[in-house]
Design a protein around this nucleic acid. Structure first.
Lengths: 325, 325
DNA sequence: GCAAATTCTGGGAGCGCTCCCAGAAGTTTT
DNA sequence: AAAACTTCTGGGAGCGCTCCCAGAATTTGC
């Protein structure tokens, strides 16, 4: 690796000063088109890439944002939801000369790392309960956007799927199918996504018996266990709304093991449209990639200091009919 | 956000010089335990975090490594394999004060970005065909480790699962079950992982008719299509080795749609142990998290300039018996 | 005991940029 | 035509660290 060209080499080759090169690089105004062109050529010729470290140090901008996964075990990574979001984040970041730094938040020092100028902003997803991380960041003046409604409320802007409406649609579909005893496998009650989908189910079930609820944890194993216990409580249940496809996978296994046919004996509706299954799941589709893009767009806008940004963005969902219900 | 404390504030509070603080921070020798202790206390009291940008600039180290996903579409992100690897990378990075920067390699400029000092090394995974990226990086003197054997060969160190042996085991299991007409759904032929698993199948099939091969692309849809075509060619096939669970999911759907019972009519063995399915898949398990850890360990060691590092690390696999075969 | 080695410490010169400031060049107004 | 702007340009002072070097404190050898 030969020594990298510096900004002064570019300046020399282009016949201008460092300052002018810097202006061109940062798209600042007050540069003659002749100078701009000369710099452009020099940059290409030398294959020059500005040194991020120096830029950050001098410019007080990190040129990086953090994606904080607030999950001790790091389990979320396996989640197709997470993968989709990350793809969206990446897509939106393209062309912004901004790095994506990935963090897991188990160690308590994440907060101070983030508030200490290493990143220009943070995306926080998979937030549980009343995690103080969000307000810590917010109070320190770091631009933050939450992925999924934070349970704690507060002034932090967030992007979320319309989980409530999605769950209502899913449940109504089950009802319209003629199901009489409809259960639900809900997500963790310390996350808004779990609560909101459960609320949707309750809303749609109003006027009916709505006590067949099993809480679980967004894992296939958890879904299987929940299904088994539901079956024990109500052997003749004929419909179930599972608050995540990933749990539905487990539920399907449990149903199969218990000798129930899907959808003939029990109709199953999932949420996420994230995994293929046997039989193919009827599910509530959410556009996770768009989710990631909105999240990132919102954060970048905040960092740029744009005015009048919406505090909340709710993305629509849609029911996808397949075989399971 | 109040002004962050700098190294000189720490120095002042600890009653020593900047240099000494720097030494303590970097674990350099020749520091009295008294000074070390004083600095430690000051750091805690001020909640001091060193400024990465300044460290990088002055120290000629980026304190960051890149995880390069060499997949145009970014599709890999959805793959449970990728998620597991990333978890491993993260785990191994903990305590190394090193950032993980995520990159997709579609734009051609990734190479020059990487070779221009923004990262201390790179992990390249999901490499297709004879992608020139690896040698570009290697030739520029950047420490690189490939995740999965690079098809192009060359001097770049790599970490891989023992795909060949795993495939042999899977196929032999099918044979020991008494299957007579064993097919395989292979991965893409421009990736070593696809080729190696196919070789394993061929090895185990030696002496038998081994022409029931369908190539696919590590997606559920592709797996379904491959299964369908296989069924058309050989309606009475009774065993199939699918080179990835994610494809097996699709194959299972196709089998189901064609009215075949698994495992009674057709026994199915997958690879990866990455997804739950109905019926639960018999599959070749590989420890993807360990994969990520090895990858990272190898790269960090290379960056540190350790001697006598193994050019290649092969991780063992094991057959997990479940219901599908 | 003193010289020589060894461990420790502080000073200060950069790392490669950005950004402020003052001045040069060019344009419009009176 | 000079005055008053406006657009452009270069110089140079940092940003907060690391690392080299020389000097102070301490230990060891004879």
């Amino acid at each position: 690796m030969t020594t990298r060209p510096g900004i002064d080499e570019v300046a020399r080759l282009a016949g201008v000063s460092k300052s002018t090169v810097s202006r061109v690089l940062n798209g600042a105004p007050h540069v003659s088109s002749r100078a701009r062109e000369a710099v452009r050529k020099a940059v290409v010729k030398l294959d020059y890439t500005p040194n991020q470290a120096a830029r950050s140090l001098a410019g007080h901008r990190a040129h990086a944002i953090a994606l904080v996964v607030s999950e001790p075990s790091g389990r979320v990574l396996t989640d197709p939801f997470f993968a989709g979001v990350m793809r969206g984040v990446h897509a939106e970041l393209a062309g912004h000369r901004t790095q994506l730094v990935l963090m897991m938040s188990e160690p308590g020092d994440v907060g101070s790392y983030l508030t200490n100028g290493h990143v220009d902003g943070a995306l926080v997803i998979s937030l549980h309960g009343h995690d103080p991380l969000l307000s810590l960041l917010y109070d320190n003046g770091l631009p933050v956007v939450a992925g999924g409604r934070p349970l704690a409320g507060g002034p932090v802007p967030y992007v979320d799927s319309d989980n409530f409406t999605g769950a209502v649609d899913a449940t109504q579909h089950l009802i319209s199918l003629g199901c009489q005893r409809i259960a639900t496998i809900a997500g963790p009650s310390d996350m808004a996504v779990g609560l909101d989908r459960l609320s949707g189910w309750r809303r749609a079930m109003s006027g009916r018996r709505a006590d067949l609820v099993a809480y679980s944890d967004f894992t296939p194993e958890g879904g299987a266990a929940a299904m088994t216990s539901l079956l024990a409580r109500q052997p003749d249940l004929d419909g179930v709304f599972v608050a995540a496809d990933i749990m539905a996978l487990g539920a399907l296994q449990a149903l199969h093991a218990a000798g129930r046919r899907v959808p003939d004996d029990v109709a199953v509706v999932g949420f996420d449209d994230s995994v293929p299954a046997v039989p193919p799941l009827t599910t509530v589709k959410q556009d996770v990639e768009k989710f990631g893009r909105m999240l990132t767009w919102r954060l970048l806008a905040e960092i740029e200091g744009e005015e009048g940004l919406p505090p909340t963005v709710l993305l629509p969902t849609s029911l996808v009919r397949r075989t399971s219900a």
